[in-house]
Amino acid sequence: MVEHRIPENLNEALKLLYHGDYQVMAGGTDLMVQRRSLSDTPLDFPKNMVYCAHLQELRGIRKEAHRVEIGAMTPLEDLLCHPDVPSLVRRAIGEMASPAIRHVATLGGNIANASPAGDTLPVLYLLDAWAELRSLAGSRMILIRDLITGPRALKIHPEEMLTKIGIPEMHFSHETFVKVGGRQADAISKVSLAAAADIVEGKVSDLRIAFGAVAPTVVRDETLEGAWEGATLSELKVGVWRLLDMYVPLIRPIDDQRSGKHYRHQVALNLLRDFIESLSEPTSEPGR
């Protein structure tokens, strides 16, 4: 018999995870679809469930020195309107699902669900965001790109819970997030690109590129990015085809019911090219 528990607080939740085989439910907007049953019948979960969306300790947005910390159970809609949340994260959330979903879906849930098409993931990879994993024994920090190992697969111990997300503060002169869905709103991503660059005195001081939905996990390659550091803006622009070539082997999308391999591949490259070609000497104060 599968157990269902609503813990009073985080400690109780962690105890449940420590002593039994439980799965954490956050907002439920993915799990409820994945485990969907017939109308008017209870959902069929294979594991014990611990419901944590309501835990106040896991909600909220806090600005710290050089970073913002977000409780794993904070609804996405709250992030969307919060000035301390990095603009790229807000942009990705703005493109996600619908208001009704954003009111309950959480950032922790989007990460833990680890879908190759997860909308916040390219941005979180790009920003070197980390997750706090907590258990009765204590907590540890892990980069989100190290936490996610494959579609719906995380490097997390059964007794651990994703409790917090930290996003380092970064300055870019240019940034973009583009999501390509089947329609203008409320669609699952066919391909997405998060990209950012800091151009200082005509030179690339930072370049970051992350693709979603084109491989089992988000594609980000710091070596490729680093190769352009110190290059002048015009070198980067002239070298855009070389840059694209470097990404060709990393972009390995699939054919599915939403789109095709060839399309995803070509569009991913188009988006990156467009971003590079749009780069210009910053004229005003860099944004965040």
């Binding site: 619908s98 089947g182 329609r183 203008q184 709103a185 409320d186 669609a187």
Partner: peptide, 8 residues
Amino acid sequence: YIIPTACD
């Protein structure tokens, strides 16, 4: 099966 939303 994608059908239009208000944004389309």
